[in-house]
C-alpha cells in the first residue's frame, strides 16, 4: 500500500507547513477522515511528483490552526473541512462562515460519521 504520513501535533502544524513552503513544495490538498472518536487531517504536498503527507490527529472539540497564513490556497479546503466535518479550524484567511456548499437550514456537518461499520468477519465477499 502506498500511504505514508509523518505524524505531527497541532502545535507543530504551522512550523512543519512553513518548512514545506520554504522547500518549494506545492500544497496538493488536505483530507479529513472522521475516525469517530477523533479527526485525522492529512496534508499532502508535492515537489517534482514526490508526494509527502503530514498527518494531524485532533479531538472533535479541539482547535486546529489554519495553514492559510502559509499557503493562501488552503483556504478553500479548510472551509470545506470546517463546513462538512465541523473541524474547529481557526484563523482561515478567507472564512466563508459555513456557506461554501451548505445553505441555511440544512443539517450541519453532513460528512461526519456516527458509528464504526462492522468488521469484515462474516461479511459476504465482493468481487
Amino acid at each position: 500500500m502506498s500511504f505514508e504520513a509523518k505524524q505531527i501535533t497541532p502545535e507543530q502544524l504551522i512550523n512543519e507547513t512553513q518548512a514545506m513552503f520554504d522547500a518549494d513544495y506545492r500544497l496538493v490538498t488536505a483530507t479529513c477522515v472522521d475516525e469517530i472518536e477523533q479527526f485525522r487531517i492529512i496534508y499532502s504536498f508535492d515537489r517534482e511528483t514526490e508526494l509527502v503527507n503530514l498527518e494531524v490527529a485532533i479531538g472533535k472539540q479541539d482547535e486546529l490552526p489554519s495553514i492559510s497564513g502559509v499557503y493562501l490556497c488552503a483556504f478553500l479546503v479548510e472551509n470545506e473541512i470546517k463546513e462538512l466535518f465541523g473541524v474547529n479550524i481557526s484563523n482561515i484567511a478567507v472564512d466563508l462562515g459555513g456557506r461554501l456548499y451548505m445553505i441555511e437550514g440544512t443539517d450541519p456537518h453532513p460528512m461526519t460519521r456516527k458509528e464504526e461499520k462492522k468488521a469484515a468477519k462474516g461479511v459476504k465477499k465482493n468481487g
Binding site: V28, T29, T31, V33, D34, L72, C73, F75, L76, V77, R113, E116, K117, K118, A119, A120, K121, V123, K124, N126
Partner: peptide, 21 residues
C-alpha cells in the same frame, strides 16, 4: 476497513486546485 463499504472516499480535482490561481 474490511467491509464492503468504505470508511472514506475523497477526491481533489484539478479545477478545485485552480480556484486560488
Amino acid at each position: 476497513n474490511g467491509t464492503k463499504n468504505l470508511v472514506r472516499m475523497r477526491v481533489r480535482t484539478p479545477t478545485y486546485a485552480h480556484i486560488p490561481a
